[in-house]
């Protein structure tokens, strides 16, 4: 099973190199609200105030990422699967900002 997955990954990398970098670029740009969250952590925001602010910031990142990448030609009933790793990514970085 895993060689098939690897082969398809390599094939996609070779086939669409430009769009791969495009998507990486857009996800990287949507990290900006999390940078704000990390900056607030540096200035030692109190924990009670962190919860709503960081939820809003993670939601902003997720909305920006989903609105650009979510509808990019994915098959119709798989939008949730395509968006879910994006959600995990932003939530994990948000938790790192929260505990630091």
């Amino acid at each position: 099973m895993s060689p098939i997955y690897l082969e398809s990954v390599i094939y996609l990398l070779i086939k669409g190199n430009s769009s791969f970098a495009q998507s990486v670029s857009i996800i990287g740009y949507t990290l900006f609200p999390l940078v704000i969250a990390a900056l607030l952590s540096v200035f030692n925001l109190p924990t009670i105030a962190r919860i709503p602010v960081y939820l809003i910031l993670v939601g902003w990142s997720l909305a920006a990422g989903v609105s650009i990448l979510g509808g990019s030609g994915v098959v119709k009933n798989r939008v949730g699967i395509a968006v879910y790793p994006l959600f995990v990514f932003y939530l994990g970085l948000g938790c790192l900002c929260f505990i630091s």
């Binding site: 495009q22 998507s23 990486v24 996800i27 990287g28 994915v74 790793p85």
Partner: peptide
């Protein structure tokens, strides 16, 4: 750790979208 996590996460998310048939 955070640096590697960000880049690997971006690559994984992009791979997932492309494997699900996304074309940007």
């Amino acid at each position: 750790g955070v640096f590697a996590m960000v880049w690997i996460g971006e690559a994984v998310v992009t791979m997932q979208i492309k494997l699900l048939g996304g074309n940007m």
